[in-house]
Amino acid sequence: MLANKVLFLDGEAIVIDKPAGLPVDPPRDGSISLENHLGGLTFGFKRWPQAVHRLDRDTSGCLLLSRNPKAHAKLQQAFEQGLVQKRYLAVLEGVPEGEEGVIDLPLIKVSSAEAGWRMTGDATGKASRTAWRVLAVKDGRAFVEFRPETGRTHQIRVHALEGLGAPVAGDPIYGNGECETLLHAAELIVPRAGKEPITAEAPLPERFMKAGFGA
């Protein structure tokens, strides 16, 4: 299934266009996850590839996999050092004030027995910055490009809600969850010492077109 969704491939890495609805980590209920597809992504190697970072279950787009332990450590380091460039596209349930800017909102994890856990803005949280730019507005919704400078859990989803005042359309935690989640990891650039960078672009999914927003 995922072998035809490869965006980049060499001896160190694979980038796939992860479908929305596919979790990276195996769910507790034992349902299908990325792990179930790794055997079909070996491309001549005996070793299965391994995810270097995470995308939320309902987020589609560029997901980086390493093909050996040495590459995995090197690629993970690029993420930890903030060297990776990421571009996301989202449709928001609302229209932000202004056309572009940077959201600087530290994030912290909170939880309750009733609602479970979620991330929220808090001055005592971990530093989180996201650049944003409105690409189009239609029927009270905004099509927005996000470029996260940090890689916190749920960063774009919380920054959209708390930083711009408009949740990602269809977000099951921070929005109304009434449609498919319209968040897509559109581009990934990972620098590598002594080698060409890993570059990948994932085409805009059909669910964005159905919502009235095209490339």
Rank of each mutant, 00 (worst) to 15 (best):
G125A: 01
Q77P: 00
Q81T: 06
G214Y: 04
C179F: 05
N4T: 11
P172A: 11
K195V: 00
A142H: 07
S33V: 11
G177W: 14
R54F: 12
P172D: 12
L65C: 13
K5P: 01
A215W: 12
P23D: 09
A51I: 05
A142L: 01
G11T: 06
K195R: 15
P191C: 01
W132E: 03
E149R: 07
P167S: 08
K138L: 07
G21C: 09
G214Q: 10
P27R: 10
P106Y: 12
Y88I: 06
E145R: 10
A115L: 09
I32C: 11
H159N: 09
L38K: 02
A186E: 15
G214I: 11
E35S: 12
P172T: 14
K138R: 15
V24G: 03
P191F: 01
F8P: 02
I198M: 04
A186D: 07
G175R: 15
K74G: 01
W132P: 01
P19Y: 09
G121V: 06
N4G: 12
G194R: 05
R133W: 01
R57M: 14
L204I: 14
E114F: 09
L183A: 09
I16P: 04
V134P: 04
V15R: 11
V91Y: 03
E114R: 14
G39A: 07
G21S: 09
A51T: 07
I14F: 05
P197L: 00
H159M: 07
D104P: 06
L2Y: 10
